[in-house]
Nucleic acid binder design. Structure first.
Lengths: 338, 338
DNA sequence: TTGTAGGCGTTATCAG
DNA sequence: CTGATAACGCCTACAA
């Protein structure tokens, strides 16, 4: 079942069938209809390989992410898929894990599959040392590279991200304005976005005229129970705090568990703010105040950016989205504002 | 940069290069090495389209799921991707949503991309009416179809699932044995797996000599707050219950929120059991007793099944995994068993 | 062990 | 507006 069968049955040449297939206007309406009828009748589907051979593209985008089972990344992948499909693109999903070697390997693999572009989900694809990012630059030499939630300046690399530093700055500042003086910061990743958040925290502390305290910046494992233990240990070591801000909802839940265990009242004795506005944040008790980084908007932006790149437009290297604080039960801003 | 360039530079024919490429043993070690060196030097990568054209396969599996941002489905997709990649297969991810028309459309789309097989994640791809499943049968006519968490008997369709009915039966029975007499069942899906779970519940009630009460089987929305409201309403209407078993952790969390609001102590006044052992289950307070359906094992089984099908083995139509009850704070079985 | 030539199903370029 | 024909890059008999 190929283009020849259709052309025979329709009594035209394969060139005409191909033209109909590709919406070429140089076909008489009558001929077009005849061909379409035959295609329908035969249930003909063009062979993507042959087409790919000629066009050297298969309308497919490679998506690289560390771990698609992470709720935040899973969301991003979902929105990307939905929006790319609107433009007729398929996605090949590829989960690399944390190892740089694997990231490189899989990126090469995607390129060898002749994807039309690569989208990297999560700033963890940006290595701290610029020289370790050469694998990205190489990729960018052949196809557009989009980075979600990270930023690096290089030709043919486009970044869509939210202003994590600003968001954490604002949230921290708000805690301070509401009378919290010892704010514990929890994080688990030193990725680009992780650094941004941390710097937002530091800046807020300094702007308020407070002193930065290393003991108040706690590097945790990405696990709620281990986070709880880490906080418990810090408290046992004499670290005092009346608020927690976490780089990730999961860590904030660990803080809630700590408060419960330590007999602290939330938000009275301890205010808690998370990050991502994930399902977890409305699951715990009290429900978690959290920063919403609008991953859907970011994903849509990324797709739109890519489409503009494809159509040859001049496209900004970076698009930044602002984010919101979603207030729930672990903070008492409202009461203070009355 | 193609096979001709390599053959020229290496001073051999393209056939020899092709043989080296495909690990054909009929090449002298010396020639092989020379060709490999040239390929390395030129950074040659075979063109997947041309290869696909000849072989009519691209070592790619299509994965269909309703919504890859659902934590449970996201997990399945992740494990599938990881395991398929071990065998050198890529995956094309395709999220359909709930509409049957879309399911059909995207399945056709995947087939037109010449995927080597299709994996359907979630029993929601099985329509209640067998005639509505003809789209699956059609697909099975051209490639193997794997269904995760659903079962239907048809040639070239293979199913990997856990015994949901048994799991709910066991959990319900355990509640009854521990003195609970009015068990509220929460569900939100009437998919194959949803039906299995419900039937497990019913059977357990009947086996224990209790009476089935329609009011105790509550169809909810897939949202924790709406579930809480639904339970509140039922209670207001006089429905009495001392335990809840939910087809989904999210619904169970709704029950926990209800208990909190109604001033009921968990597990003393109300025992709660969820399903899936998702992150949510260790996030709430108290932590949720839940049924773990071993999605990782199921995913691995599915991939292994597929590989056996590819190698032409005779493969059972269905593989069933048993599942465990993970006991946490919302039940008090342990105390009763002492 | 190696090389030659035909085929895979499209697309694109020319003539007409 | 339509048709013939040459790419596209690889695989695989078959021949040597």
């Amino acid at each position: 079942m190929n283009i020849y069968d259709v052309s025979h049955k329709a009594g035209v040449s394969i060139a005409t069938v191909s033209r109909v297939l590709n919406g070429n206007p140089n076909v008489s309406p009558k001929t077009r209809q005849k061909v379409l009828d035959v295609m329908q009748e035969l249930g003909y589907t063009p062979n993507v390989f042959a087409r790919g051979l000629g066009l050297n593209t298969m309308k497919t985008i490679g998506i690289l992410c560390l771990d698609s089972s992470d709720p935040f990344l899973a969301n991003a992948v979902y929105y990307l898929e939905q929006n790319l499909r609107k433009y007729g693109y398929d996605i090949i999903l590829c989960c690399t894990g944390y190892d740089l070697k694997n990231k490189q390997k899989y990126l090469d693999l995607l390129l060898s599959k002749r994807v039309d572009a690569v989208i990297l989900v999560g700033s963890s694809f940006l290595e701290p040392q610029r020289k370790d990012n050469t694998y990205l630059f190489q990729a960018a030499a052949s196809v557009p590279v989009i980075i979600i939630n990270g930023y690096i300046n290089h030709p043919n690399i486009y970044c869509a991200l939210c202003d994590d530093a600003q968001a954490v700055f604002d949230a921290t500042t708000k805690l301070i304005e509401n009378g919290r003086t010892n704010i514990l910061y929890l994080y688990h990743s030193k990725s680009y976005s992780g650094q941004q958040k941390l710097s937002g925290y530091k800046e807020a502390i300094l702007s308020a005229g407070l002193k930065l305290d290393e003991n108040l910046m706690l590097l945790c494992k990405n696990d709620m129970h281990q986070t709880k233990e880490a906080i418990t240990e810090a408290a046992a070591n004499g670290v005092k705090f009346d608020a927690v801000i976490a780089a990730e909802d999961l860590l904030a839940v660990g803080a809630i568990k700590y408060a419960k265990q330590a007999g602290l009242k939330i938000p009275k004795d301890l205010a808690v703010i998370g990050y991502n506005n994930s399902l977890l944040s409305s699951c715990c008790e009290p429900e978690l105040t959290t920063i919403d980084n609008h991953i859907e908007t970011i994903s849509i932006t990324a797709v739109n950016t890519l489409m503009r790149v494809f159509s040859g437009n001049d496209v900004p290297n970076r698009t930044t989205i602002s984010n919101d604080l979603v207030e729930r039960g672990t903070t008492d801003f409202a009461k203070n504002e009355i």
